[in-house]
Simulated scan of single mutants.
Amino acid sequence: MEEKADYPSKKKTISEWVHMYGDYLFSWAYHKTSCNETAEDLVQEVYFAAFKNYEKFEGRSSPKTWLLKILNNKIIDHYRKLSIKEAKQEDSTSQFTDSFFNSIGNWKANGLEEAWAEEEHLLDNVAFNEVMEICINDLPAKWRLAILSKFLLEKEAVAICQDLDITASNYWQVIHRAKLLLKKCLEVNWFAKQ
């Protein structure tokens, strides 16, 4: 039966690995996440996991390979958690946008209907564009990308569906709900204050 590594030895080995492979692991994590903070956090988690599971390292691969495998699992977990978080945000946002309509599917009156009809040159107004940018940035990530791709980049629906990895019917639902949220945000943060 193998003897478990003593704490000082284990600590020394992990510390050496930090110096030997830390930059490589950070570069890989940054390549996969495009975020310094996230990459740093993931690499730190790798070393915590390596320390915790040090006895499971059998030496059949190099330490670098073992650490990279741990990192790849951490990256997958990161995106899984992010996906779940975005799905929950989209669900709650969808429920919110449903409240804009009455029982037969018509817009609920809010007294701002005439304001929309009167404004012709809003996009020439710097202050309006600042509010619009805030409203766009408040959209769920996938919705924001769909809106920007469609209206700013003027991409075709097929290309946007491929970029976002969604179906055509999901795309139209995303665009519809994003426009509803933008309308509500602009009404609250622009029209109601004019």
Rank of each mutant, 00 (worst) to 15 (best):
K56F: 13
D41C: 02
A39C: 01
F48Q: 15
V43Y: 00
T33M: 06
F48P: 14
K88L: 12
N36G: 07
Y24S: 11
D41S: 06
Q89F: 09
N73H: 10
N72K: 13
S83Q: 06
L82W: 09
Y24P: 04
Q89I: 13
L25N: 01
D77C: 08
D41L: 01
T33C: 02
W17D: 06
Q44L: 09
Q89K: 14
D91T: 12
F57G: 03
V18N: 05
L82M: 12
E37D: 10
A50E: 14
K52L: 14
V46I: 09
K11C: 11
S27V: 13
F51L: 15
L71Q: 05
E90A: 07
L42C: 00
S83Y: 04
G22T: 01
T33H: 01
P63A: 03
K52I: 15
W17E: 06
I75Q: 04
D91F: 12
Y47P: 12
H19P: 00
H19I: 08
G22F: 03
T65D: 02
K64R: 04
Y21G: 00
T13Q: 15
A50N: 12
Q44G: 06
R80G: 10
T13M: 11
I75R: 03
K56I: 11
T13D: 14
F26T: 02
L68M: 11
E16W: 01
R80S: 10
A39G: 00
A39E: 03
Y47V: 09
P63C: 05
G59E: 05
H19T: 08
L67H: 04
N72W: 07
G22R: 02
E40G: 04
L67P: 00
S34N: 10
N53Y: 14
N73I: 11
Y24L: 05
I75M: 10
A87K: 11
D41I: 04
E37K: 07
A87Y: 09
T65F: 05
S34K: 08
